[in-house]
Amino acid sequence: MKHCLLPMLVLLMVILQTTVMPYLAIGEAAPDLVFLLVVFLAIQRSTTLGIWTAFGAGLLQDIAAGGPLGLNAVLLIGLAYLVGQVRRKLFKDNLSAQVLIVVLFTWLHQFLVFFWLNTVMATTFGLEKWALRAFGMSVFHAVLAPGLFRWWRSWIQGENIYRYLISGRKNQGARWSRLRRMS
């Protein structure tokens, strides 16, 4: 069961990204939950897990949203690897440092997409579009990251399911036995 939690989370984030997030978009900017999840895993768990998730989630996002197959996967794998390199030099439990990483990597991610589209797919996006999108998305990400990271940490540890369903009952039993002893 616990092994299914991460794939379930990835699928949930892709579904939310493609159905709910369009309603939160302001102009050019909208949060990218899949990107945030990959950065979270690369910071809080391990680089290897971040890379594997980036591959799976990137392909899933490309297919679910109708983008070119492999584009998100390539970029997210690269970002997960880089985040893993940076994480070694930072105190990983420092929330401010995590938000800073998220903001910096949002700019980098958007620049890589911009660069790829303009060079390989021959689009003609301007630098101002990149700056506008990156700014808006980094604000969204900086606001959302602390809450989402906390939720995801408890989800992956299975706290939502195990702590409240199983451990909660055990604790309740222990409390009852303590009360009986006291009385």
Partner: peptide
């Protein structure tokens, strides 16, 4: 070198998919 190996392998697979997108 597990990180680097996984990274290189998955990047190559993803790039292969991206490059062959015109003829899936």
């Amino acid at each position: 070198w597990r990180r680097e190996i996984v990274f290189s392998l998955l990047i190559i697979i993803s790039l292969g998919m991206l490059v062959s997108r015109r003829e899936p």
